[in-house]
Simulated scan of single mutants.
Amino acid sequence: MTDDSQLDDARLAAETASAAGELLLTVRAIEGDALTGRELGRRGDRAADTYILERLAAARPGDAVLSEESADDPSRVEADRVWIIDPLDGSKEYGMPSHVDWAVHVALWEAGKGLTAGAVAQPAIGVVHSTGDVPPPPPVSRRRPRIVISGSRPPSFVFDLAGELGADLIRMGSAGAKAMAVVRGEADAYIHAGGQWEWDSAAPVAVARAAGLHCSRIDGSELEYNRPHPYLPDLVICRAEWAPEVMAALARHAVGPGDSPRVAMARAYIRSLVSHDASHVRLAADAWRVENGERTGDSGVEIRDRLEHGPEYRPIRRIRDLQFHEWHHSVVARFVLDIATVPGGGKPASEMSVAVTEHFDIPAGEIRSIVAVIEPHPQNS
């Protein structure tokens, strides 16, 4: 039996990510027929998160942890060592039997040093890349660069950028899968904008840096981890020989400010009103919500469940005229909801609109409370 106390950090990261990946394969094999794609992803996420937390607690009991699937402890910001983990990166792809583009991320951040160890496991293809043994990417002879991008939400500017570079675009799930494609030389760059979290990129960046790749924000600035708000919206991982050209093209095409961390959290909540998927909504365990003076949620679990299954959200068809205002810990969102009305008397369904104001209290990395005011919209009259 392996003695965790004798493992160096890179080896611990690799063994932990690998074992969590094997667990995910087992969950997928046993429960894949019984659970829907989303529920299978959540089942796998919870199982892998529990395993990784227990393994790290046994091996490094004094270290802090930042995990996508666990409540955020603000005291981690003052810790000397913080493990940043994503138990299942690409849960959507994991829930689709034909997909192999999902991963497990385990990374270590140290005060004054940044990312010092990490591993990305891709269980479906039997591969684990670690900072302890990753080689430089092999040389390639292709003349057109290959850029991997999100399969579901690619940056709007990336198509013009690809045209300028003469690049081929490859859509793929999971940040880890995309980053490791560059590490292995299957692609030349991975570009993302529009929203990510520290756990999405920490392990991939640690491994990519160990392989000698360029890693930065899309504006060329440093990627910083273990911040009070773990929102890290954009990322570039690129072969060193392509970096000057890619970064110069990004400077011309990737313009405009992105969301702040708090606005990003509020936006994720508002998107879920239509998508009925609250997987990316960060809610504190004791979060609460009030709507027009009535309590509509007493915990993060209850609010998330109502977003996904509550009948009051099913008729929502679209969100428009969305505006955000932010100060201190507060974000106020104002928008219009178009809602389908129930048909009656042989008449087809129609729509009505309501004006919504939602006040979010976000003191740290999770939404603590939501106060909503819903009013008739003038266009209804």
Rank of each mutant, 00 (worst) to 15 (best):
D133H: 09
A243Q: 10
Y225V: 02
L165M: 11
S141F: 13
L25Q: 10
E245N: 13
I237W: 07
S98Q: 15
S299M: 09
L169V: 01
D4N: 10
A14H: 06
S150V: 06
P139C: 07
D277V: 08
L165D: 03
G166N: 11
W109K: 07
G32F: 00
A29Y: 00
G176Q: 05
A13D: 07
P363E: 11
R42P: 00
R295S: 13
D259S: 13
D234R: 05
W327S: 14
G310C: 06
W102N: 04
E245Q: 14
L12S: 02
A266G: 08
V104G: 01
S350Y: 03
D8M: 09
R184P: 10
R368L: 13
S141K: 15
V100K: 15
R282C: 02
S260Q: 11
G365A: 14
D200Y: 05
R334F: 00
T296D: 11
F360M: 08
P139L: 04
R304M: 08
C215H: 06
V263L: 12
G112D: 05
V281D: 04
A211D: 09
D259C: 08
M172R: 14
P311M: 14
A14L: 09
E366H: 07
E110S: 08
S98P: 01
E31F: 03
A59K: 07
P315A: 00
E375N: 12
L108C: 13
V77I: 14
P315L: 00
L307R: 11
P257E: 15
D3H: 05
I316K: 15
L235N: 03
D286Q: 12
K92N: 10
P137F: 00
E164S: 09
L161S: 05
D338N: 12
L235P: 00
A47G: 03
L66C: 02
L23C: 02
E69N: 07
E198M: 08
W197E: 08
E15W: 12
A349F: 07
C238Y: 07
R304A: 15
D4G: 09
E302Q: 15
E291G: 08
D188K: 12
P74Y: 09
R306S: 12
T50E: 15
H309A: 11
A189V: 02
A167E: 06
G173F: 13
P378C: 03
D4Q: 11
P261S: 03
E375G: 10
T50F: 11
P204V: 03
G310H: 08
A249F: 04
A107V: 04
N292K: 06
R227P: 00
M247E: 12
V120E: 06
P311W: 15
V27E: 03
R142D: 01
S275H: 13
W199E: 02
Q6M: 14
M265K: 13
A14F: 04
R81I: 05
P155I: 07
D73P: 03
A287M: 11
